[in-house]
């Protein structure tokens, strides 16, 4: 079994659905940072079967809303002095601002650059969609 040392001070993004780890790694632009970061993929998990984990040896601002949008199973642990001092669960956000664009090419939010796209969560046919506050088209978020 591969082992990775625990981190002293930083953030652990855990319970990432296997395969999403690399996407979150890229979304957080962790390939551009100058502090230690570890991406573990296909780690055995009793809850998920297998999962991805990202360990970041630094305290950075992580957008919980964005993580919830990508993968609502994720937990985020804040580590200080080798101990978890805060544990956060992500949720599917009910409202999203600016994290993605409306898929409707005729929507005003795709033309005027000062407009922040805004969406409300709707569930249609058992799937999760976001309804644009401007043109009302449904957009599904994918990374």
């Amino acid at each position: 079994m591969l082992t990775v040392n625990s981190i002293n001070c930083g953030i652990v993004i855990d319970h990432i659905t296997a395969g999403n780890g690399i996407k979150i790694f890229e979304k957080l632009k962790l390939d551009e940072v100058n502090f230690p970061v570890v991406l573990l993929i296909n780690v055995p998990s009793s809850k998920l079967g297998k999962k991805d984990i990202i360990k970041i040896e630094n305290k950075i601002d992580v957008d919980i809303t964005m993580l919830g949008l990508i993968d609502p199973e994720i937990t985020v642990n804040i580590i200080e002095n080798d101990k978890i001092v805060k544990k956060m669960n992500t949720v599917i956000p009910k409202e999203v601002q600016g994290l993605f664009k409306c898929k409707n090419p005729r929507c005003v939010s795709n033309f005027d650059e000062y407009v922040t796209p805004k969406f409300r969560l709707v569930k249609a046919n058992g799937k999760i969609h976001y309804r644009c506050n401007y043109c009302e088209e449904l957009t599904s978020y994918s990374i």
Partner: peptide, 8 residues
Amino acid sequence: PKEGAPKL
């Protein structure tokens, strides 16, 4: 012509 312009 843009959808959502009056809302904006």
